[in-house]
């Protein structure tokens, strides 16, 4: 019996340190992702004037939609923060609810972005039109792809939370997810500033 409890407490410790190890690894993953976006931003900076005579940022971008997207994504970052707060209080239902709100907002963001892309393409501004548009679609699309992957992950986590509640493992997972989500938010602020604001100015 004594043996069993010793084993248990040991197990507990090992587990906990293992979970924090995974958060550290996720931070480093985020660093590599920052480099991915950094490289894409650099390419955009080089190519954003290479329109080959076609319309540039000023002519193409419609700010109201983009501003709405921005607000939606910022709000979703806030609600994901609320989800983490609920988690620390141990309230599973609340946690899942806030995650659901976050996911809906994220989906709305993706929907708006897709609409914007479809409209541009229908007007004949395609990824193959010129170097500026190649860089634009790739940079913004990579961010959108990240958000979409985040959505799938979020849904998977909500299912796990409803089955298992708040445990060490699910806590770590939610922590990483919200880290990811805030990170995408920060990236978007750069996209918004560099691509859209500076583009139309």
């Amino acid at each position: 019996m004594a043996h069993a409890t010793a084993e248990h407490s040991h197990a507990h410790e090992a587990h906990e340190s293992h979970e924090s190890l995974k958060v550290l690894g996720f931070w480093i993953f985020i660093v590599t992702d920052i480099l991915i976006f950094g490289t894409l931003f650099a390419c955009y900076a080089v190519l954003h004037t290479h329109t080959n005579g076609g319309p540039g940022a000023k002519e193409l971008f419609e700010m109201p939609g983009v501003i709405a997207e921005t607000f939606i994504l910022l709000t979703s970052s806030f609600t994901s923060g609320l989800a983490v707060l609920a988690m620390h209080k141990g309230k599973v239902k609340q946690l899942i609810a806030w995650l659901a709100v976050t996911a809906v907002l994220g989906a709305a963001f993706i929907g708006m972005e897709l609409t914007e892309f479809v409209k541009l393409v229908e007007e004949g501004h395609k990824i193959s039109s010129n170097a500026f548009l190649s860089a634009f679609y790739t940079l913004v699309g990579t961010h959108g792809l990240h958000v979409s992957i985040g959505l799938v992950w979020m849904i998977g986590l909500m299912i796990q939370l409803s089955r298992r509640g708040v445990t060490e493992v699910t806590t770590r997972k939610v922590t990483n997810l919200s880290l990811y989500w805030h990170f995408l938010d920060v990236i978007w602020i750069f996209v918004f500033t560099v691509v859209y604001l500076m583009g139309v100015m």
């Binding site: 991915i36 490289t39 894409l40 390419c43 080089v46 190519l47 290479h50 329109t51 080959n52 990824i127 193959s128 039109s129 010129n130 170097a131 500026f132 190649s134 860089a135 679609y137 790739t138």
Partner: peptide, 25 residues
């Protein structure tokens, strides 16, 4: 990763990151 992905977009979707025409570099 990014460099190869961009080259692939050039080849696959006809993007113009590194082409000689339409503003590529």
């Amino acid at each position: 990763t990014v460099t190869l992905a961009l080259l692939f977009l050039d080849r696959f979707l006809g993007a113009h990151f590194f082409t000689m025409d339409l503003g590529g570099n």
